[in-house]
């Protein structure tokens, strides 16, 4: 476990110096860090608790809308808005989980799509609350300690902090009692129950944590774009992208979602500039190839291989 903390510290250090080394590549980096954070948050529910959600755009949207509407319609400072969003997201996740956790496997997944779609329609139609279909601009933000929150550097460090927090949370979980409970529920709810774990409570906690962290990233996303539209922010494809990032990297692993973000966002950016119109085609093919040849994800697959080898050696000796 210690080595994970060493890797973590090294990566954060690298992250801190990145803007000095590549000042012209901040937007891509911000997008990458946001996806890394979202995928890691998603993985708490999707990987560690084993509940695949395709509705996480709702939490991105909650965070983004609290910040955008809060700052531009109600003059609430973004940090208070984010705090409110975290609370709201946990509450939504709680109710959402209460409603749907009795559903298993694909039923749960499909129900998350339905709920997220309802969120999208509410965001579009309730203009008094959200600004409606035409979206919300963030024109001015306060300047805490003289920091311009709109500047790419500040956006970058916010996104870095967000990604770091999510990874740190997952590292703490992975060795905690809660982490073992999550895995027990994922592997077999009935046996988990037999050993005194309440699966619904455990899953609810995971969902609330996952939702709140995703909303945190959503708040930063709103500032990064400084203009949000409900169609884009509550879009099914965003949910799918987040889940995809985590699964491609490797579900239920500490670094999988980050590696996934590197692959998904990085390749997307490279393909965008090199393959012109064919870029999405190549991207789709890449997803298929990775999943077919590495079904447990880029991190998950070698990890499984290593574990197997260790067991094989033990069995030999």
């Amino acid at each position: 476990m210690k080595k994970h903390y060493v890797i973590f510290a090294g990566l954060v250090l690298m992250g801190i110096f990145y803007p000095r080394m590549f000042p012209g590549y901040l937007s891509v980096a911000i997008t990458l860090l946001l996806y890394a954070g979202w995928a890691t948050s998603w993985d708490i529910l999707g990987g560690w608790a084993g509940q695949v959600s395709l509705g996480h755009a709702s939490f991105v949207g909650l965070g983004a809308y609290f910040v955008a509407v809060g700052t531009s319609h109600h003059e609430i400072a973004p940090w208070w808005a984010v705090l409110m969003a975290l609370f709201a997201a946990s509450l939504v996740a709680y109710l959402w989980g209460r409603l749907t956790f009795k559903l298993k496997g694909p039923y749960f997944t499909l129900s998350t799509i339905a709920i997220a779609e309802i969120f999208r329609l509410v965001a579009i139609n309730e203009g008094w609350l959200t600004g409606g279909a035409t979206g919300v601009f963030i024109m001015t933000l306060p300047e805490p300690f003289g920091l311009d929150l709109f500047s790419r550097q500040v956006n970058y460090y916010l996104a870095l902090a967000f990604a770091a927090i999510t990874v740190l949370v997952v590292m703490l979980i992975s060795r905690s009692k809660f982490g073992y409970q999550l895995r027990a529920v994922r592997e077999d709810e009935d046996s988990a129950m037999a050993s005194g774990i309440n699966p619904t409570t455990v899953k609810l906690k995971a969902f609330m944590l996952s939702g709140a962290l995703t909303a945190l990233g959503g708040g930063i996303y709103a500032i990064f774009l400084s203009f949000i539209e409900p169609h884009i922010i509550f879009y099914l494809l965003l949910s799918v992208q987040i889940a995809l990032t985590a699964i491609i990297g490797g579900r239920g692993t500490i670094w999988g979602p980050c590696i996934g973000a590197l692959l998904v966002v990085g390749s997307g950016e490279i393909f965008r500039t090199t393959f012109a119109e064919a870029n999405m085609l190549i991207y789709g093919l890449l997803i298929m190839v990775v999943v077919i040849f590495m079904p447990r994800g880029i991190v998950g697959e070698p990890a499984r291989y290593l574990i197997r080898r260790v067991y094989a050696k033990r069995a030999q000796s």
Partner: peptide, 24 residues
């Protein structure tokens, strides 16, 4: 042999591939 979500991802990739072949 893969976990159940794999088919979801592969068909998602397939959707992208089909859509963009049609586009081209």
């Amino acid at each position: 042999e893969a976990p159940p979500e794999s088919s979801l991802l592969v068909t998602l990739g397939l959707a992208l591939v089909i859509g963009n072949i049609l586009l081209l």
